[in-house]
Design a protein around this nucleic acid. Structure first.
Lengths: 195, 195
DNA sequence: GTTTGTGGCATACCGCCAGTATGCGACTGA
DNA sequence: TCAGTCGCATACTGGCGGTATGCCACAAAC
């Protein structure tokens, strides 16, 4: 039956909630199953283990974030306006606890950096990279070094900025400051040249 | 007696090794104690628990990195040269597994972001921030937004770059590319202005 | 319409590991 | 020489991830 799919979805949802609230290590499978109104047996019927469940939760969060981010990019005319809009949307999304905790913080630790890297390509990091790629292709910024490397560094800056905002005493003000800092850094990519 | 201090140091050293090799979750206290040629009883005599031991390992790694980084900054005349030298030294140090794994990756997860943030101020992050502060004070770069926020974002970019290098097929080439990307980003900080 | 799977779970159990309780010798000061 | 403390070792407990097994509903086979 397709009660199965419903059960699986409930487990993933409960996992996202608990992993976000208490972190991976402090969330027991019994409790996740209980919150989904099933038992650990059901959990192990759908997932190979705790890691696999985390991976499903990870992808669930990423899919939500990517769809919202994609919808929020109206395609401004000015490339810099678009970059700015993308920055703001990303920082806003980073304030959602599930993304910060599951994807940014615990993802690389629980899944291992390599697996996290590969999975991320399909979701938010892929968005950042393709966004930068377009800016390179239309000449707004100079490639200089490979876009992939640049995207990794920028993504790291974005994540750190999100963490800074979320742990600030005054998130609104800090959000503006982070946005400014990131924009000013990205300006350095305009006028090419290595030395 | 001060056999005590020797035991403690051996435990911290073993902890750094195992946490680096297998990560926090996959390192048992029994094994850490065994590697230090003592038992778990000794471990709990010196540390309140696994978290406390990790924190000691964290600080041990940071102290080593900071001392090496400080020694490697000969104080060039040209501020940009100095920035470049600092970048390279940092990236080189980031390739050491203990720093990447214990401090950069697992630190925020195991200690919690807040505790990690506070501890980091005294060590590597403090270095990055004070370095940027000096560049602001001598007019090399414009403050724009608070140096603290800027330092957080830059530190995130540095960490992401280090991870990228360490997981690259060709670390030497990637290291050069990451250095270039970071330097070009930092160039955006020169000519002030927010809009 | 009984038999034989098979999917979708639940229940019971095991081993590992962080943490606790306790014991115990060595040394130290009174 | 006796009390007290430091520096550890040993023994035990509870929680949790993982596994093994059982059970029921349903479906195809004949």
């Amino acid at each position: 039956m397709e009660y199965s799919e419903h059960t699986r979805a409930a487990l993933v949802e409960s996992a996202i909630e608990l992993f976000t609230e208490r972190g991976y290590a402090n969330s027991s499978l019994d409790e996740i199953a209980k919150r989904a109104r099933v038992t650990k047996g059901a959990l192990y019927h759908h997932f190979a283990g705790k890691r696999a469940l985390f991976e499903a939760a990870f992808e669930g969060v990423e899919i939500g974030v990517v769809s919202r981010l994609s919808a929020e990019m109206p395609g401004k005319r000015d490339p810099w306006e678009e970059l700015r809009a993308g920055l703001d949307a990303f920082l806003r999304e980073c304030l959602e606890e599930p993304f910060r905790r599951v994807v940014v913080q615990e993802g690389p630790v629980v899944l291992g950096y390599r697996r996290w890297y590969d999975l991320g390509e399909r979701y938010t990091f892929g968005l950042v990279r393709s966004s930068l790629t377009r800016l390179v292709e239309n000449g707004t910024i100079d490639s200089g070094s490979p876009v992939d490397v640049l995207a990794r560094v920028v993504f790291g800056g974005l994540s750190a900025g999100a963490n800074t905002i979320a742990n600030s005493d005054d998130p609104k003000r800090t959000s503006v400051e982070v946005g400014q800092a990131l924009e000013r850094l990205l300006r350095g990519l305009r006028d090419g040249g290595t030395g």
